[in-house]
Amino acid sequence: MQAPQLPTSQVEQPKESRFSPYQNNGGTCLALAGADFCIIAADSRLSLGYSILSRNTPKVAQLTTKTCIASSGCNADMVTLQKYLKFKIQMYLHQHGKEMSTPAVAQMLATTLYHRRFFPYYTFNIVGGLDQNGEGCVFSYDAIGCFERLKYTVSGSGHALIEPFLDNLVAYKNTDNKPTIERSCDETLELVKDIFSSAGERDIYTGDFVDIYIIDKNGTRYEQFPLKKD
């Protein structure tokens, strides 16, 4: 049977601006894991098109004493997702009398994202912290919940700028300069600052400040690092 013909109008339809439920507010997230520490960082610029809506809107949230999340993309989805995760983690604490481990938080985030498979949270997340053995760990995600445990990762608007440098400077890919000693926490922190300063030069959606969380066996330390405001 043939499908019924839709009636057609004689006049051209006026252009209609349709409502879009998504906005790209930009931003870059970065996490690096060491043997016994983890550094997780994101810039604090909130952009919309060529405008800067705010210079000081954090993208990193501390979820437990040894887990942090950083999210870029759509601010509305980011706020909602982080609020939801904090709520679930608090309920876990009440029900089980202990904190959720970082790999457990990572799995929960994946499940949460996939629940919205057909109306996704438009966020690019990174989870960083220490695992049950006190080892630094980083989890990288796509917007619909595919995830992977890694040693380092970057996501958001500065992704394409930073990733190849991390491949070279952290994983020592495409080089013969393989050092025998691992980078210390302080050296890694300097690397993170340099990376964000450089990304801020080329990516208009990265700038203003970097919120850095340094997680080690002593707990979590916060540091704010200024970037160029242009």
């Binding site: 906005q23 405008s51 705010s54 759509c74 601010n75 509305a76």
Partner: peptide
């Protein structure tokens, strides 16, 4: 500030719509 998508942020200075370009 809050918008129709649900974007939320706090700041010392805020301007909406055309004011974002001209007044901010």
């Amino acid at each position: 500030a809050v918008d129709l998508i649900g974007t939320m942020y706090e700041d010392d200075i805020i301007a909406t719509s055309f004011g974002n370009y001209v007044c901010l």
